[in-house]
Structure formats: structure tokens, C-alpha cells
Nucleic acid binder design. Structure first.
Lengths: 137, 137
DNA sequence: TATTGTTATACTCTATAACTATA
DNA sequence: TATAGTTATAGAGTATAACAATA
């Protein structure tokens, strides 16, 4: 079979991205989390009292779609909300959220290390550089 | 705001992949096609009488999910099926399918050229090499 | 027995419009 | 007026299980 797609960088990028996401998703599911939920734990830890809108902007997730994600994190007792003013609230990690954050951090770090380890040494820096030049450009 | 995710290659990869896919999707929508449909036109052109199962395997799409995709391509008079034996069929491009294939090819080529053009010259080869080493490994 | 195409179904992620309450 | 959070809803992609017909 001839595969004219395998020579296309954009196509390669998409397939690789999907398979890596599936791997991460599987590892995070052992913590009962989805990738978006895990990312949010990292961002809340790094930004005390961050709002859902700010989170969504950083993650490229629409405000409307943040609602059920945050609701799940709250239901799991991982995050709690504190009113900032009458219409917005900041989010922080509960004690359980902090413990989970540490585990998430380990999982993501090992996932990222795995990725780098699979790339030949002489390509690694160029790979990250290329991704950064494609980032939102 | 601190973004601990922007330094993670896997996260960068996913965000870049998503935004590139959105761009391609938008361009293909002017042809009335989705990325999966466009890919299939390329693969049928390159592989006469290919079956849905073989297509799905190459694209990483489950057989069950190929059904509605192919049904749409047939409804648009882009592909037609020919029985190979009692239970399987091969797919080929109709005259309109061939014309559309040429347009799809142009769109995808310019999309891919755009991607490469955004990457610094000294990173381009390493980027593709890195993607290939991450491909299904 | 294994495979092909199919149906039905559910889950995830995403996109839009409209509403409310507050700034 | 503009913004934050929310609701409802629709679209797209994906996953699984089960079935009939055929190899």
C-alpha cells in the first residue's frame, strides 16, 4: 500500500500528537483524571486564585467548556473556589488536590521525558525550537 | 500568569497540532470536505480499489467509523464502490472525485508548505526526523 | 473460525448563542 | 456597555459490542 500522507510533516504531527495524547490519557486515567483536568491542576498550582476564564485562555478552552471540567474537579474535592468579586472566582487546590497535583506532575514529567528519549539527541533541540516557531503563529 | 505547560514538548506538540488541524479544516471546508475525507481521497487515488478496512488501518480510524465517512463521500459523488468479493469492496474516484482530488492535493500541499515555511531552516530536517522517530513508536 | 461491513450507542472535545448578574 | 460564569445544544471524532454475510 502506498501512503502519500506519511511524507507530510503536518500529517505526521497530527498522528504523533494523537498517539501521544492517548498514551498520556491512559496514564492519567489511573489517577481518575483527563488530560485537561491534569493541566488545570498544574496551572492552578502555579497561579494562585486563577479564574476559569484565565485558565481557558491559557489552555485554548472556551469559557463555556470550562464549566463541566471545573465541576468535575470540584466534585472530586481537588479544587475549591473563592469569590473574587460578585461575578468571578479564583480557584485553589484542596489538600487532596495538592497530593494529586504531585502525582500528576510525576506522570506528566515521565511522559515528557519519554517523548524526548525517543528522539535522536541531535534532533531534540531543533524539535522543540520548531514547535515553538509553530506555536500560535 | 505563569504557564508551566509551555515548556513541555508534548503539550506544545498537541497545541500546535490542534491549531494546524483547525487551519487545514477551514481551508478544506471551502471544498466541502473534512480532513478525514480529504485524506481518503488522496489514499484512494494512490491505491486503486482499496477497501474501507485498509483505509481505516492506514488512517488509524476504526472500521465502524469509516462507514459514515465513506457514505458521505459517496453521497457527494466523489467515490464509488466495486465489489471485490461477497463481503468486501474496493473504492475508486468518480470523475468529480478526481477533480476534487486535484484541488485537495493543492490545498494540502500549500498547507504543508506553509508549515515548513514557518520553521527556521536549520530546524526543518530535524523536525521531520524527530516526528518520524515518534511515529507509532 | 476469522474477517468485512454494518448498526447502535456512548463518550470526549469543541463551538455557538443566549441568558444572568455583576463590573 | 462589557465581562464572568452559566446553560443548552449541536457538531465532530472516537470507542465498544454485537450482528449478518462471507472467506
Amino acid at each position: 500500500m502506498i501512503d502519500p500522507l506519511k511524507s507530510l510533516p503536518g500529517y505526521l504531527l497530527r498522528r504523533v500528537s494523537n498517539s501521544l495524547r492517548d498514551e498520556l490519557s491512559k496514564q492519567l486515567s489511573e489517577l481518575g483524571l483527563r488530560p485537561s483536568e491534569a493541566s488545570i491542576l498544574l496551572l492552578i498550582q502555579a497561579n494562585a486564585e486563577i479564574t476559569p476564564s484565565a485558565l481557558g485562555q491559557m489552555l485554548g478552552i472556551k469559557r463555556a467548556n470550562m464549566v463541566p471540567i471545573i465541576a468535575r474537579l470540584e466534585r472530586k474535592d481537588l479544587v475549591l473556589r473563592t469569590a473574587l468579586d460578585g461575578r468571578s472566582y479564583g480557584m485553589s487546590l484542596t489538600p487532596l488536590g495538592k497530593k494529586t497535583h504531585a502525582k500528576v506532575n510525576d506522570v506528566i514529567k515521565s511522559h515528557e521525558d519519554d517523548i524526548i528519549a525517543r528522539i535522536p539527541k541531535e534532533d531534540q533541540e531543533h524539535f522543540v525550537s520548531a514547535l515553538k516557531s509553530l506555536w500560535l503563529s
